[in-house]
Design a protein around this nucleic acid. Structure first.
Lengths: 232, 232
DNA sequence: ACCTGAACACCGTTCAAGT
DNA sequence: ACCTGAACACCGTTCAAGT
């Protein structure tokens, strides 16, 4: 790869070379994490995967956390590309597309989502995304303080709920199965005298889809913003 | 401790002894995790703390995950005790007290919250809590499917947002400081031409409190449930 | 100038050996 | 019947030594 680059353009600078190798490490790390799970993403295995000594990676990234944030920013840039604003679109529809993309991204990259959903990168993709979402709320006709409040309610709720799903889906298979089985194994067997309401709702409790719950949360926040805009 | 117990009641059975020692391990583990952070809770250090060989803990718990769930259920039982229903209380006020308790618990036990917020224990405290919350939504006058939908929206949003805060607050201090500084260091410096909306809202963005965001999400879900009840 | 490999200080977990 | 300690197969990270 170094060779092709050198032929394509003028001799790449040291900085360009380093950033190319960083990008390669980021792509490999993302693939490794999603293929092998959260515990499969280790510096040693990433080194193996790239046919390089693990300690060489410390020349590219200060530590594993910096690598992780770089992977997260890579994912965010994909998300940003997928939600480019549409001319004349209603503000809330823009946000619905954002929420949908956050969900898709978490479903596609559960391991990296689980590792990073509570983080702030401050990177270029994240900055553009903040501007895009905040602009949508500003278009709704909210005051500055309200726009910020609902922006945060929206993005915190979306990232958190998707993060929770991602954390759950990256548990060890047996552990995940045990947790998931609690609803059919434990809750479905609870005596009606002690747990009358669970008993009455057990069919819906076991049938409901995570995506429907996520949509309900997102719509609740959008509706709250809409009402705030109407009364201000 | 074994001695006192033996004196207090008739000789405790093997099972009682084991459950007493489990409870002691759970309390020590909770204390250790919150004192030393997520990475401080290891079987070796818990063994040290209890003056017992680490491998002895494997007689009390199948593995570290089972210990963790036991600690989580211990926390849940405290939460349950703190939100006992009040006679004649409006359904939404019960849920506000639950949401407040979830927040307090996450603030008090961030490490354990970060480790368990996406889990289902199926334990006694969790079952009572499910019944309590679901009953509140049923009292709102929702259909069965709606009650379940908003029950899930409420508890998923509450646990997720508190979990996100907990994960963030258990990061290494330097890493946390770096993430937190992004708002003042990066976002406050963005040029107004490229990021006009961030620029316009930067004061509110840096000033807003996490608790206000959490309350906005909770109130949005409660209002959505209220409207659904009114139209059904 | 860059990479390697040994080493350090840890993990969770198993199991033969002790009392 | 219970506990211990050695051991296994790992981690992230540092740093002297090589090329």
């Amino acid at each position: 790869m170094t060779k092709e680059l050198a032929e394509a353009s003028a001799r790449p600078s040291r900085r360009e070379l380093k950033s190319t190798r960083r990008e390669a490490a980021v792509v490999t790390a993302l693939d490794l994490a999603e293929r092998e799970g959260v515990s499969g993403l280790t510096m040693r295995r990433l080194g193996d995967e790239m046919a390089v000594d693990p300690t060489t990676l410390y020349r590219l990234f200060r530590d594993k956390d910096e690598l992780l944030l770089a992977v997260y920013d890579h994912v965010l840039s994909q998300n940003l590309a997928a939600v480019q604003p549409v001319d004349g679109e209603v503000w809330s529809d823009t946000l619905r597309r954002v929420a949908d993309q956050v969900w898709r991204s978490a479903a596609r990259y559960p391991a990296v989502t689980a590792l990073t959903f509570a983080r702030t990168t401050g990177g270029p993709a994240e900055r553009r995304m903040v501007e895009l979402i905040l602009t949508a709320f500003a278009r709704a006709g909210l005051s500055r303080a309200e726009a910020v409040l609902y922006y945060r309610a929206f993005i915190d709720a979306a990232l958190s709920v998707c993060g929770q799903s991602a954390v759950f889906s990256t548990l060890d298979p047996e552990v995940r199965a045990k947790d998931a089985a609690a609803w059919s194994r434990i809750y479905a067997q609870l005596p009606g005298e002690d747990y009358p309401t669970v008993r009455e709702h057990i069919e819906d409790l076991t049938a409901i889809a995570d995506r429907a719950v996520y949509d309900a949360v997102v719509e609740a926040v959008l509706a709250a913003a809409e009402r705030a805009a109407a009364t201000s």
